[in-house]
């Protein structure tokens, strides 16, 4: 065991190589987990909203607090990023945009578009 290379101690997060496509990929996972966690709330809202006019009014009222709207903006970003990166992965699956140059460019486009549209949702929801 002593002949093994020592464990890396170089852990400066700003200097570790982290290609843009890795950001797209990890954000696809993080947004997917957030969407999964949001699913019960979505079903709850659907349930309330279909329980007559009173339930509908309660469902709308639940969406009013500022922190809920900020949470919804996070979910909106999750959905947008997950959708865009999902389409990118599907295209790569069928052989479109596989070259490093194009894959890097589409990764940038996905990350930035998701972020900008997410911020637009935040602005709209606040």
């Amino acid at each position: 065991m002593s002949s093994q290379q020592p464990a890396p101690v170089f852990l400066n997060l700003f200097r570790i190589r982290f290609p843009v496509a890795a950001v797209t990929s990890i954000a696809h996972r993080i947004s997917g987990v957030l969407l999964f966690l949001f699913f019960p709330f979505l079903v709850w809202l659907l349930d309330l909203s279909l329980q007559g006019p009173d339930g509908y009014a309660r469902a709308i009222a639940l969406l009013q607090p500022l922190w809920v709207r900020m949470g919804l903006a996070l979910i909106a970003w999750s959905l947008l990023h997950h959708l865009l990166s999902g389409i990118r992965f599907l295209l790569i699956d069928i052989g479109a945009g596989v070259s490093l140059r194009v894959a890097r460019r589409t990764a940038w486009i996905v990350n930035l578009t998701g972020l900008l549209l997410g911020l637009a949702c935040l602005w709209w929801l606040l």
Binding site: F39, V43, L46, D47
Partner: peptide
Amino acid sequence: VACGLWAVRV
């Protein structure tokens, strides 16, 4: 499964 059954019931 719980969410799925709940949503179908709704």
